[in-house]
Simulated assay, not measured.
Amino acid sequence: MKKKFLVAMLAMMIMASSVACGKTDTDKGPLKAGEESSEASFEIKEDSADEASSEASALEAVEAASEASSEEATEVTADEAAGYVDGQAYINENFNLKFNIDSDMSFADEQAVADLNNAAGDFTNDTIKKYVDEGKVMIVAYATDDTMLKSFNVALQSVGSLVTTLVDEETVLNASADSVVDLLTQQGFEDVTTEIDKVQFMGEEHSSLLISSKIQGIDYYERVCCLVDNGYVMSLTTGGLTKDDVTHLFENAEKLD
């Protein structure tokens, strides 16, 4: 079913974003972001007949819209959806977001972001946006402190304007939880657990995926929120040694207007 594929595709972005924040200075090996979204393979469980009926209705709506326009274009370009860094803030006008990082953190340059995306050669912001338009999951902004144990990153994917009729933020986060546990465990993290809770974000209450784990015996946490708008989905992930580290950055985020 198309809904299952779309949710799995979006969850792939959450996984890439979580691993990016989990890249501490004790980690080895490249981060495999920028994957083709169709490689997501985990199953979304659906238990009720009502859910199946709802999925069928959503599928019919997608297919009807597809008949009218097989390649429905979004009005927002990848350049606009990717946002930009301004001093100690990540700005994204498409999502009406200003995300302020702490004074002891700094944003990575183009080469460091390219490395996170496992890219080589002549890799620029324009290249990232080109890949986003091709449907790949890409890290578009990354910030960390000197220890690399407190971090923030933004992952972006172009999914088409019809996705907003099929999924919401909490659906994507729930779909990602088990796969995030498996992926971080493969990266060397231990005792990885997840829970969906609420966090104040841009002055509103948003669903969030809170990840708890250990790395070499040290407690490590991540918090993930996602936004869906104008044919794009954005995943924002913070990492740190305490729950407060990963929470207050979201609380400091604000709307542009």
Rank of each mutant, 00 (worst) to 15 (best):
A143M: 09
V85W: 03
M138K: 08
T242S: 11
V137P: 00
G121M: 07
T74Q: 13
K136P: 02
M105Y: 01
E205T: 14
K130F: 09
E71Q: 12
T171W: 03
Q111F: 11
D182L: 14
D145R: 03
V19N: 07
F107M: 03
R223P: 10
E39P: 00
T24E: 03
D244M: 05
F99S: 05
D168S: 08
L210Y: 01
K2I: 15
E46N: 05
F250M: 13
G231D: 06
A81G: 04
A253Q: 05
C21D: 07
C226Y: 11
K198M: 07
V85R: 01
K243F: 05
H248A: 08
Q111R: 12
S179P: 14
L249I: 06
M1S: 11
D102S: 09
S38Y: 11
V19K: 07
T237R: 13
V159W: 13
G188R: 04
D257R: 06
E43V: 10
L249N: 12
L227P: 05
Y221A: 05
D245C: 08
T171Y: 01
V181Q: 09
L97I: 09
S103C: 04
T127H: 05
R223F: 01
V85Q: 02
D102K: 02
E63W: 05
Q186R: 02
G135I: 05
D102E: 02
M138Y: 00
S69M: 11
D229C: 02
D178F: 15
A89L: 09
G121I: 05
N96V: 11
A112N: 01
E39D: 00
V154D: 00
I211F: 06
K98L: 09
E93S: 14
A119I: 01
A8H: 02
Q186A: 03
G121C: 04
V224Y: 09
E35W: 09
